[in-house]
Design a protein around this nucleic acid. Structure first.
Lengths: 169, 169
DNA sequence: TTATTAATGTTATATTATAACGTATCATTT
DNA sequence: AAATGATACGTTATAATATAACATTAATAA
């Protein structure tokens, strides 16, 4: 199981997450001969700022602040679409929110563990689950093209706190 | 694998789907001592009219026509919320749409196979996948509470047509 | 009946997303 | 360097989805 869940839900040098993501993004852009502009890079950076998915209008606010000028929704959505296309970010439909992808270019599951307490979302690539989904699709004569898997619950930290308060009662 | 995918993607006596669903719904309501009103029943019926998920505003239009009076969004959303609570319908987040649940009251996976061609959505309950997701959560110290799994692709019929046209080329 | 709760009606508005068209910037060719 | 074409961004307006707040009506219980 390839996962960044431990990383997400544990204290870590997050500067590294960000710079690694940006490096990957730039590499991918030169590879595909597309442009990583200031707007796009800023949006990607903002989405990597934390492990909480951000909505388009949160992004708008932060982007506007960062670039010190008014930003309209289309600008944000264009950057989002660009990054989605390249697989550098994901949309989490049930949250109407976006998050940086920790393993772009690798085929993976779009499986998220979303904490309903703190809002953090960890992406997990799980080969066994993927192949089960593939074979379930095959059995149903369903031609699988893409997927979006969302698990809701409590992240490790919030689970612990919950237990603590449970015990206190 | 408990599934209604064969049912959804094959011609069948759909009147039965509807009446079975309504009977289950009424039973559940008496059990839980809540009211199945005209609005709620109509919405449920509309959602069972086809195996295509419907958006809230599609429902609004159809409901308004059915009841022969103007219906405002809150009315629709209230009925939707009620039915969601009881587990009689599901929301499919990536479509902003709602669909009748073929096996309410049973614990199940919220796994949908959604045809990107014809829009039909089949719910599939797959115990093995469920338990894999559970154990993946356990390993990550993630307290799983609920889930939403969406598979996109081509349903059996649309897959066949696709092959046909592929061969013609 | 009256009191109480539950459901619906009504108006307004929040939130998320896109359409359409103009302007600026970048990259390539001449 | 100038001209060209393509790409990205600016701007305005609006579509689509969802909810807040409060008034009214209907159902149930006391």
């Amino acid at each position: 199981m390839l996962t960044n869940s431990r990383l997400v839900h544990q204290p870590h040098d997050h500067g590294r997450c960000i710079s690694a993501a940006l490096t990957r993004a730039n590499d991918l852009c030169s590879e595909q001969k597309v442009r990583m502009t200031t707007t796009r890079e800023s949006v990607l950076r903002l989405l990597w700022q934390s492990h909480q998915p951000l909505g388009a209008y949160q992004l708008q606010g932060q982007l506007s602040e960062l670039l010190n000028k008014p930003i309209a929704p289309p600008t944000v959505y264009r950057a989002i679409d660009f990054l989605l296309q390249l697989g550098l970010i994901h949309r989490i439909p049930s949250l109407n929110a976006y998050i940086g992808c920790p393993f772009p270019n690798s085929e993976h599951s779009n499986l998220f563990m979303i904490c309903s307490q703190c809002g953090s979302a960890a992406e997990v690539a799980h080969n066994t689950i993927n192949s089960m989904l593939q074979s379930a699709s095959d059995k149903a004569n369903f031609t699988l093209q893409s997927q979006c898997l969302e698990l809701f619950g409590l992240c490790p930290q919030c689970s612990e706190h919950r237990e603590d308060t449970d015990n206190e009662q």
